[in-house]
Amino acid sequence: MVRDRVIALYGRFSPGGRERLQGQVLAGGGTVARDLTRRSGALVVGAQAWALVDGGALVERLAAARERGLPAYGERSFAALLADDDPRAGATAPLATALAQSGLGREDAEVLAAFDLITLARAEGGAETCRFGDPKVMRAAADLLAAGRTPGEVVRLLGEARDKAPVGRHRVVPAHAGAAALQWDDGRTTLEGQGLLPLDEDHASLDDLFEAATLAEVEGDDDRAARLYDLCARADRTDPIAPYNFGNIRLGQGAHDEAAMAYRRALARDARFAEARYNLAQALEAAGRAEAADAELSRLLELDPGHADAVFNLAQLRLKADDLTGARALFERYLALDPPDDWAATAHKAIAYCQARLPA
């Protein structure tokens, strides 16, 4: 797609982004320029080119590309295209409807698309389309504009929300002191997922809420503890401990699928959280998903080879799957970790069982 074409890499790119894209274009037989020229075959806008929005320079480039029939991409979407992954494939919602719902104009949509905040495409017949989730982004942009933010500030804030906010259903709304916040179904947080939630408990802080959850768990009120841990997890979307504790309660209650979801939530926040991955494997095994549990334990042992319990449980899974060779090797590995005598005895019995069934 770049051979014998001049690609305009316009504006400020993310760190190292310009160099990476330039190298790929050159390797593909194309050339690059820092601005649109008559020879340009495409316009690519840097992910950090916000300063070029309010003065009109970027809008002019986008209009010139449109008038000349040249494709315009954001930094991310162009990188995806070079990797043979067209982000426009999923853009099937009518753009006209999305614009009408948000109150934005076609030019506003072009600016959002230039920063990969929405995706613009054309359906068969020429009608312009976007992704089904893009109207939400457009409404957020309209809200920020109505609150007095400039178009350049809007794309910067929406980009920060996309890059820094945790995954989930939220929208960007104006906040105090010129900042922006994320509006969730159950309250507000900062772009980093911290802070602003008006919790439905009579506690002054997240520390108080977490303490109440812990006390409820100690007192045996598991349902209240689970609800409070869930509130903590929603209030601080960077903390892996609250969803982990929630998962532990649900695991103890036999709600294996819900527990697994909670552990995955914790791991999304901290992929090296060994306890969460170990308990995820337990929840998956209890739910009858032995292969998935095996995969999680194997992944855990890649990160923490000395996790004795994970070695033992994986050995048991392999034994149940009739993988006698793999089970024996794991039980031997377990013994090398110097386990307690009673567990070592169990491992020795398992090894003897495997040896007796394996061919001589």
Rank of each mutant, 00 (worst) to 15 (best):
L267P: 12
R227V: 13
A233M: 11
T189G: 06
T214F: 08
D222L: 15
R264G: 10
Y244V: 13
K320E: 15
D202R: 01
D230N: 12
F312Y: 06
R269I: 03
A315K: 00
D202F: 01
G254N: 11
A293K: 02
A268F: 08
L297D: 07
D230R: 12
L314K: 07
G326L: 02
G220Y: 13
T214L: 02
G252I: 09
G195T: 10
Y263N: 14
C232A: 14
L300K: 01
A225P: 07
R188P: 03
G326E: 03
R224F: 10
L319F: 10
D208I: 07
R188E: 12
L303Y: 02
G220H: 11
P243F: 05
S205W: 02
T238Q: 14
R289T: 01
F273Q: 11
G220M: 13
Q194R: 15
D207G: 11
E192T: 12
A233P: 13
A287M: 02
L324G: 06
L301P: 09
L215T: 09
Y278K: 05
E275L: 09
D304C: 13
H256G: 00
T190D: 09
D323Q: 03
E201A: 03
D223V: 15
R318M: 03
A268H: 08
R289Q: 12
Q194I: 05
S205G: 14
D322W: 05
A216S: 14
L303C: 04
T190H: 05
D222C: 12
Q316M: 02
F210W: 00
R224K: 15
Q316S: 11
E219W: 02
G306F: 03
A235T: 13
R318K: 09
L284H: 00
A233W: 14
P198Y: 05
F210I: 07
L297R: 04
A225L: 10
L199D: 08
H256W: 10
L231G: 11
A226M: 12
N248Y: 06
S298P: 00
R299H: 04
L317Y: 01
A225T: 02
A283N: 00
G306T: 08
E302L: 14
L267G: 11
A266S: 10
Y229P: 05
A281V: 02
D239V: 14
T214I: 05
E285M: 00
R264P: 07
D230S: 13
D230Y: 03
A260E: 04
L251C: 00
C232F: 04
A310V: 13
R299D: 09
L319T: 09
A310Y: 03
N279V: 05
L267Q: 07
A310I: 06
R250D: 00
D323N: 09
G193A: 05
